[in-house]
Design a protein around this nucleic acid. Sequence first.
RNA 1: GCGCCUAUAGCUCAGCGGACAGAGCAUCGGUCUUCGGAACCGAGGGUCGUGGGUUCGAAUCCCUCUAGGCGCGCCA
Length: 552
Amino acid sequence: MLKRTLIDLLTQAAAEAQRTGKLPSITLPKIVIERPQNTEHGDYASSLPLKLARVTRLNPLTIANDLVSFIAPNPKVGQVVATAPGFINFTLKSDWLARQVEVILKADETHDNTKLETAGRVQIEFVSVNPTGPLHVGHGRGAILGSTLANVFAAAGYRVEKEYYINDAGNQIDAFYRSLYTRYQQYLGEVAEMPEDGYLGDYMVDLVREIMAGNDDRFRHLPKPEIASGLGKLGLEKIIGQIKADLELLGVSFDVWFSEQSLHEGGQYQEALSRLQQGGYLSEKEGATWFVSTALGEDKDNVVIRSDGSPTYFATDIAYHYDKFLKRKFDTVINIWGADHLGHVSRMKAAVAAMGIDPEQFKVITSQMVTLRRGGELVRVSKRSGDIITLRELVEEVGADACRFFFLSRTADSQMDFDLELAKKQSADNPVYYVQYAYARITSILRLARERGINYENGDVSLLTTEPELTLIRKMLLLPEIVELIANTLEPHHLTYYAQDLATVFHRFYKQCRVVSSNKALSKARLKLVEAAKTVLSRTLHLMGMTAPEKM
RNA sequence: GCGCCUAUAGCUCAGCGGACAGAGCAUCGGUCUUCGGAACCGAGGGUCGUGGGUUCGAAUCCCUCUAGGCGCGCCA
């Protein structure tokens, strides 16, 4: 990593400055290397002198000049200059940059796999929607966030598992069973009223029809409760199947489908609760059992076992996280929840802490609401009302690539409007096409070279010296930093901005530098560069879960 | 009422305590046209919601207020 190199150089320079008395012997502040937004300030910069000036009361520019004089020569680093008010700017060497083309080609798609020291086993749990109805648009946001983060973590050297938690127990499932049974009665022509808390969507009617298709008498001779549960189980299976299929459309898959029910059957529920009990975190009150989260700074306690003896959702979720951390021993657990679960975040963190787990290992991303608009009209998305826009409808209308890019390009913690009309109408102007077009252009150039029988294996990359060429290389070298940034901040939206930047510098290079020309040596060198760009752009698109089209 | 999130160009949004606040779309003007014009170049457009504070330095950190969203159940 370049930043690492520069930090080392600065650390050594500072030590040398202290040894020679130019700098007082104080403990150095954390050295931060940033990328200046103005390219005139070089490739990297540090404001270390400004920070040192504060503690040493010396002139920052003087410190900067002194440090620069102590910076050891390095094959990667060219110019190092001190500038007012107290920055040190680094510029990378052009010949080193050019050589990176070979490095990228040699390493292929894995070139940016950074091995972070902290890398370990990480679990990302996302979507985890109750299997009581189809996925809607908001779920798509979580699905895309989660699957992209998983890609990024894998690229950063972590061992990642993607998991879907199936809520196959509890009240909502019960309501689902009762709703389905009612629809079944109606299907048979009986008069039956949907339950108060039922699922009213038409999909429930379709579901019954589907289950009964060609098998009308399968429940005929069974007693009522058995019909309800038999029907319910079949319905669940079908809906889970639909959820899987819908996610597949978006390019989202899971390694583990984890059953809530299994926490009760496998004993984790009991173990988790007795662990809390032993820690003194449970108390009896009003006939129920409470988790005393106020002891951990929460504003209120929460019920874990109702007065009728049944566990709350919170209780099973505690058991679930007990299983994640203490049974399966993940180093990091990331949950992606919708904004409607906000109230659950802090008490869950408290519960994790109560089980003796380092809260740093537990991260929750809450993705804010997505409101749908059709033209000017707002569409409220609710699963229980009949009026829903499903994720499937959205993907079929807009396309998976555009969908992914659109959702990814906003930070998770800001709410977003998704205007279906606009998404369709502007599809030609959608940045996704801009980025993919760059990729198609690249493959087209390489195709031409192949058709002309140009073998560029022996191309000499030291011929790559012009500004558009070096700018492209600089941008390509940024990807590992983006991957690291996202792994640390859990903010995958940076990828979309990077993809557009990369496409832009490629288009600019293309415009200014003829690749296949009469200058054979230069052609070969540039073909190598184009091939490297293809690798990096393809990598970027795949991290986002998008396709890299050869033609469009 | 309490907690969390959001407020930056006409629109949609980036912006890690640092150097004149950026991009896409839209608007206006230009380029070239043998490798894909779904391209490239340029211009205009901003009291970074308001008011304070910390700092050498704030869109970024702290507090006030305003507006919008979400949450505050023995629902999940």
